[in-house]
Every structure is written in C-alpha cells, then in structure tokens.
Simulated assay, not measured.
Amino acid sequence: MTIDIHCLADVCLIPIGTGTASVSDEVAAITELARSSSLDTTLHSAGTTIAGPWTEVMDLIGQMHVLVHSRGVVRVQSDIRVGTRTDKHQAPADKIRVVEEKLSSKRE
C-alpha cells in the first residue's frame, strides 16, 4: 500500500551519547541533507518542519537517522509530529501567515 497524502512533519532528532552537550554539528549535517532534498523544509529552534508527500517525508527522516549514525552516533531518538489535510494544500508558511494575520487584526 502506498501512501501519497501530503503532510507536514515537525521532527527533532536527538543524538544520544555524543560526548558533549552541543549537537549543532549534527543539526547542521541533517539541515544540509534536508535542504538538498526536493521537499519544503524549515529549520526552527527545536527541529525542522518538512512538507511533502508522506512517503518522501518519512524517507527523508530515515535518511537523517542514517546520516547521524554514520557520523558515529550510536543512538538517535526522534520526536515527530505529523499533520495531514485532505481539504487543501498548506505549506508551513501558510499556517504561520494565518495566525499572524489573526494576531494583527486583534491589535487594530
């Protein structure tokens, strides 16, 4: 069964056992991977939002795990939140814009 529904996934990879509190090297590596993909990706302070077809998004998340493991990290934990809609296509920027417009109208 192939799932071709569009989704927005918010993912945070957590490398465990790196020997340091900083994980910015791993974040930079997976961000480079995400940006080189054909998917719409947005880096934020606690992870990355990925938009696209379900199977492609999940494949990219798997590639992120492989990449971090290939850098010598033995254990990787992921927090993933995924949303889907069938009534319309929505990009991450669309969701932010709608909320900002509502906030702006309340200030007036």
Rank of each mutant, 00 (worst) to 15 (best):
I96G: 10
H89D: 10
V73S: 05
S105T: 01
A29N: 06
K95H: 13
K106P: 03
A29T: 09
M1C: 05
I3V: 13
D59K: 09
H89W: 10
E101W: 10
E100C: 04
H6T: 07
L33F: 10
G52C: 11
I5L: 05
T41P: 00
S24R: 08
A29I: 05
V82W: 13
G17K: 12
E26I: 07
H6E: 14
K102F: 09
H6G: 10
V11F: 13
R81W: 10
L103R: 12
R35Q: 03
D87K: 11
A91K: 15
H65I: 08
S104D: 15
D94W: 12
P92W: 12
L67G: 04
G52W: 01
I50M: 00
L103D: 03
E101Q: 11
I16R: 06
L39Y: 00
D25H: 13
I61Q: 02
T31G: 06
A34L: 13
V68Y: 02
I3D: 08
W54M: 11
P53K: 03
P53C: 11
G83S: 15
P92V: 06
P53G: 13
M58C: 07
K106R: 13
E32H: 15
D10N: 08
E26M: 08
S45Q: 02
D59W: 09
G47P: 06
V98M: 14
V66P: 02
T41S: 03
T49F: 08
V98S: 10
I5W: 04
G62K: 09
G19P: 14
I50H: 02
S70Y: 03
T84V: 14
P15E: 11
T84R: 02
I5E: 02
I50W: 00
A21D: 03
T48P: 08
R107P: 00
D40I: 06
S22W: 08
T2N: 02
G83M: 12
I5C: 01
D10A: 07
D59G: 01
T31F: 07
M64R: 10
L8F: 06
Q63I: 07
E101V: 09
M1P: 08
E108D: 12
P15R: 07
D4V: 05
T55S: 14
I96N: 09
L13N: 09
V11P: 01
L39T: 01
T41N: 00
A51L: 00
S36L: 08
T86C: 04
G19Q: 14
T2D: 09
R75P: 01
V98I: 14
T2P: 04
L60H: 08
S38R: 05
R97P: 02
E101N: 12
R107K: 13
A34V: 11
A46C: 10
K88Y: 10
V27C: 07
V11E: 06
Q63K: 03
